[in-house]
Nucleic acid binder design. Structure first.
Lengths: 254, 254
DNA sequence: CCTTGAAAGTGACGTAACGTTATTTTGTAT
DNA sequence: ATACAAAATAACGTTACGTCACTTTCAAGG
C-alpha cells in the first residue's frame, strides 16, 4: 500500500489527476486510512499504466472506463477501428493545416507582411475548390502544358524549388525601388530566366500563354495561381526586356 | 444589413456561434433593431470569413481576436511559426498513435482478442526505449544481422509483408488444435518456410541465433520482438520438423 | 388593429480533463 | 505537544459552443 504521492511520483501523473480518476470511478484506491488518505496497491498501479497507455492512444476517459470494465465485453475490433479512423482524420487535418501555414509563411516572406485583404484573397483561392480550378486549367492548357503547370511553385509546398521561386519574387519586390536597370534587379531576373529554363525548358508557346494568364489577375485566380500584384508583374516584364537586350548586346560584342 | 439567420445561412455557422462571438467581442453586429435583433453588414461578413479561415488553421478564438484587432501589431512571423510548431507536433503525435493502433489491430488479428495482460506486455515493450533495445540488439547480432532484423514483421507497420507474417501466425494458432500433421498446418508452415527464404535468404547462422532468441520470451522482449506464446512457438517447431522430414521423403521418392 | 406563429432574445447548465486556489484535516518527526 | 508537510474537500476556471427553457420581437394575414 503506497500513498497517493508515491503513485504520482512513480507514474508521473499529478495528484489532482488521481483524485479526479477516483472521483469519476475510473481508478479507485485500494483503501483509505482512518483519516481518509488514499492508499494504492500493485493492482491499481497496473491499472493506471493501462489507463495511461490507452490515453496515449487518444481514447477518452469514458471509453477507457468501458474498455477496462471487468465485464470484458468491449469490442476491440470495432473500437480500435473507430479510433484509427478518427486519428487518421485528425492527421489529415493537421497535414492540411501545416501546408496552409507554410503557404502563409511563404507569402509573408514575399510581402514582408500579411494584410487582411490578402487573407481574403487567400480565402477565395482556398474556397475555390480544386474541381473548378481543374476546369479552368483544362480550358486554357492542353495535357502536356498542364503537366508543366505542376512544376510551378506551389504556395502549399516547401520543397527547395518552390522556396527559391518565392525568395526570387521576394527579392525582386525588395529591389523594385531601384529601377529596372539596377544590378540587383538584373541579377534576380537572370536567375529567374535560368530557373525557368531549368524547370520548363525552351517551351515558348507555353510561356506566352502562361504569361498572359499570369498578367491577368482574374485569370490567375481562376487557375489557382498565387496572386502577385500587377505592379510587380509589370516591373518584372520591363526588367526582363532590359535583360534580354543586354544579353543580345553582349552576344554582339563577344 | 442582414439578419443573424441570413449570416448563418450564408456562412454555415450556427446562430449560437454568432451570438457567442458577439458575447466575447470577437464579432459584433453592425447594429441592432429597436427590439434588439442583431443586424450584420458586409464588413462583418468579411470579418467572419477571416475568423473562419483562421479557425481552420487551428487558432483559438482569443488569438484570432488579437490577430484581427485593428491595431495591427500582431507578429505574423512569430505567430505563424508557433502555430506551425504546434501543428507539426500534433501531426507527429497522430502518426505515432496511428502506428500503435495498427499494431494493436494486428495483434488482435493474431490473438483473436486482446487481454489486458497482453496490453501490459505491450506497455513494457513500448516503454522500453529504443536505445535500450538497440543495446541488446548490438549484444546479440553483428551489423549484417541487424540489417536482417529490420526485415522482420514490425507490429507498428502495415505493409503487405508484415500483414502476411501476421496472418500466417494467426492461421497457425487457429489450426493448432488439429495437430502438427494436419494439412492446414503444414500448408502454413510451408508458406512460412518460403517466406523466410524470400525475406532472409539461406542465412542459417542468423536463423539459429534468431530462433534461439525467439524461443526465449525474456530475450525476445529485450530486442523488442512481438511476444508470441511459448506454446505456439513449440508447436511451430514440431510442425516444422514434420515439414522438413516430408520434404526429405519427397525428394527420395521423387 | 389584432392575432399568431416563427424567429430572435437572454439566461443558465453541460461538456473534458484536469489546474489552481482556498480552507480544513491528517500524518509524522521532534 | 508542537509544528510542518502532505492530504482532503470544495469550488471556480478553462474552450467553444450545444442545448434547453422561457420571454420578447417581427412580419404577415384577417
Amino acid at each position: 500500500m503506497i500513498s497517493i504521492k508515491d503513485v504520482s511520483k512513480q507514474t508521473g501523473v499529478s495528484v489532482r489527476t488521481l483524485r479526479y480518476y477516483d472521483e469519476i470511478d475510473l481508478l479507485s484506491p485500494a483503501g483509505k486510512t482512518d483519516g481518509g488518505h488514499r492508499l494504492y496497491g500493485e493492482t491499481e498501479l497496473k491499472k493506471l499504466q493501462q489507463i495511461l497507455f490507452l490515453k496515449t492512444l487518444g481514447f477518452q476517459l469514458k471509453e477507457i472506463k468501458d474498455i477496462l470494465s471487468d465485464d470484458g465485453n468491449w469490442n476491440w475490433a470495432k473500437g480500435l477501428e473507430n479510433q484509427l479512423k478518427y486519428i487518421q482524420q485528425e492527421k489529415e487535418r493537421m497535414i492540411k493545416i501545416e501546408q496552409t501555414l507554410k503557404g502563409l509563411m511563404n507569402s509573408l516572406t514575399i510581402d514582408g507582411s500579411i494584410d487582411l485583404l490578402y487573407i481574403n484573397q487567400l480565402i477565395q483561392l482556398y474556397q475555390q475548390n480544386a474541381e473548378k480550378r481543374e476546369i479552368y486549367r483544362h480550358r486554357y492548357f492542353d495535357s502536356q502544358e498542364r503537366e508543366l503547370l505542376h512544376l510551378l511553385p506551389n504556395m502549399n509546398r516547401d520543397d527547395p524549388d518552390s522556396l527559391e521561386w518565392i525568395s526570387l519574387i521576394a527579392q525582386l519586390k525588395k529591389h523594385m525601388g531601384q529601377g529596372i536597370k539596377a544590378p540587383e534587379v538584373q541579377r534576380v531576373v537572370k536567375r529567374i530566366d535560368e530557373k525557368s529554363i531549368e524547370t520548363f525548358g525552351y517551351n515558348d508557346a507555353f510561356f506566352e500563354k502562361f504569361w498572359a494568364i499570369r498578367k491577368s489577375p482574374e485569370k490567375s485566380k481562376e487557375i489557382g495561381l498565387y496572386p502577385i500584384e500587377q505592379e510587380l508583374l509589370d516591373f518584372f516584364e520591363q526588367a526582363w526586356e532590359v535583360y534580354q537586350n543586354e544579353q543580345f548586346d553582349g552576344e554582339k560584342e563577344g
